[in-house]
Amino acid sequence: MTRHFSKPRFRSIPCVAVGWRFARAAGAAAALTLLAACAGGESVPGLTPPNPPVPQVPENAFPTLGAPPADRREPLTPEGQAKLQRDLERLARTQSK
């Protein structure tokens, strides 16, 4: 013998269902209105960040980030490169003997 249990059917109150539908439709309309306002030329007050004026500063006025600036030698001139090459060749000859 098999018993068949049926689920109890709960019927929602019609005014509550209409309330939820209305709330959902109103939320969707509000979201679409905000998206349409953001897409246009006018901005929605309260949603745009403040845009304060920024003073113009010369490029070399900014501090270096990280390591302090390195004290570097000036690049070698062609005469300095020739002298360095001669010195290295002389050193290589003395090392190979």
Rank of each mutant, 00 (worst) to 15 (best):
L84N: 05
T48V: 11
E74D: 15
L32H: 01
S12A: 15
P53V: 09
P78F: 01
F5S: 03
P45G: 01
R93V: 03
K83F: 05
P45K: 09
C38E: 14
G41Q: 08
G41T: 07
P52A: 05
V54M: 10
A67R: 12
N60D: 15
T2A: 10
P14W: 01
N51P: 00
P50S: 05
E74S: 10
A39M: 15
A25R: 14
L35E: 10
L34W: 11
A25Y: 04
P68G: 05
R11Y: 12
A36P: 00
F10E: 10
T94G: 02
P55A: 14
R72L: 14
K83V: 04
L65F: 03
R3Q: 08
A31F: 03
P68Q: 04
P69T: 07
T64F: 05
V54R: 11
W20N: 13
G40W: 08
P63K: 07
R3M: 05
L65A: 13
P52Y: 04
R73A: 13
C38K: 08
I13S: 03
E79F: 02
S43D: 12
A39C: 11
Q85S: 05
A30M: 13
S6N: 10
G66W: 06
N51F: 07
R72E: 15
K97E: 10
L35W: 10
D71S: 14
H4V: 10
L84R: 14
R9L: 08
A82Q: 14
E74W: 08
R93F: 04
A39K: 03
P75Y: 01
K7G: 04
A26I: 14
V16E: 00
T48H: 03
T33P: 00
G40P: 01
T64E: 15
V54S: 09
G46V: 08
T48E: 11
F62G: 02
R11G: 02
D87L: 12
K83R: 15
Q95G: 05
L76E: 01
